[in-house]
Design a binder for these strands. Structure first.
Lengths: 156, 156
DNA sequence: TAGGACCCTGGAGTGCACTCCAAGCAAGCA
DNA sequence: TGCTTGCTTGGAGTGCACTCCAGGGTCCTA
């Protein structure tokens, strides 16, 4: 049995994926230029090349003249990277994950652990934000009350 | 009527305030040194001085020899700043808010708007994170299934 | 009154995640 | 054939949020 990242192909369950990365080409005809991928992902061409340089991308296929040709699979990987980036995960950690994927099946457990840790981080982050939301809501209602008091002062 | 930030004194409703900023001194005896505030807030003394330099803090009281003496009110402000920082609000925006507070009552509406915008940002951020959580959960269960398959393969 | 811990300042340095640049090659079109 | 547009590279530059340093003053305790 082989544990690969092919499952990233399933993006059907994605909720609120940033910029709509709609018009994909069917598998087999999926050879996107860097600027097409930039448009599709919302990243700049600069950033895409940089991701590759630091090892965050698998080796991208090239045209006969050396230009990058991205596949649907590369797009899936970028979608995952985008999600992980949203969690605030440092790029270095994402590179580590990419290395594990490249290294093959024996890194399976480590990947699993990394994902579970990330999940915990995300839950903690959500809790933090909800705490902040509570503070914000108290302040907002304070200002709203003050606003009403000010208004009634004017009409008095 | 005066709309000040005295309401920040009420921290009773704070949920999950980062490092427990418990042992405060009673109002009137609240003259903390910079290192005490550092311990209380989890910020470094460097960062506290830097916050002051960029205008993120009100003017901090000084001892007769020029050393900073923070008050409970300063601590409250720092708690709010900490919350806003958690939302990912840029420091420049927090400085803007601080300026509005310093400027007085006539900035009331602007502050209100800023808080409401921030609230929207936080809600959007939470939604994003929940989207990421969904992706993470799918991947995690994929790995868990793969793990079970691998295990049953071994016992076969 | 000596020593060590703490505090002050302006300015320089750090780490991260991009972001841009210069110089050159390649493809499509008038 | 020239022009425009897009792609290539290594390396340098940017903006943010700290983080640290040098050189000096202050506080407290023995």
């Amino acid at each position: 049995m082989t544990v690969t990242e092919t499952e990233t192909t399933d993006t059907s369950a994605d909720i609120c994926a940033g910029p709509p990365q709609g018009n994909r080409r069917p598998d087999g005809a999926d050879r996107y230029t860097i600027s097409e991928v930039a448009a599709l992902t919302g990243l700049t061409a600069h950033t895409l090349r940089w991701y590759e340089r630091i090892g965050l991308m698998p080796h991208i296929d090239r045209s006969h003249t050396g230009q990058r040709r991205y596949s649907n699979r590369d797009l899936d990987w970028l979608a995952l990277v985008g999600k992980l980036r949203l969690t605030g995960m440092p790029v270095a950690d994402m590179v580590r994950y990419a290395e594990l994927v490249r290294a093959g099946d024996h890194t399976y457990t480590e990947r699993f652990e990394l994902l579970k840790e990330t999940r915990e981080d995300v839950l903690a982050r959500i809790a933090e934000l909800q705490g902040t939301l509570a503070v914000l809501d108290r302040k907002i209602s304070f200002y709203a009350d003050a606003g009403r008091a000010l208004a009634s002062e004017r009409t008095r």
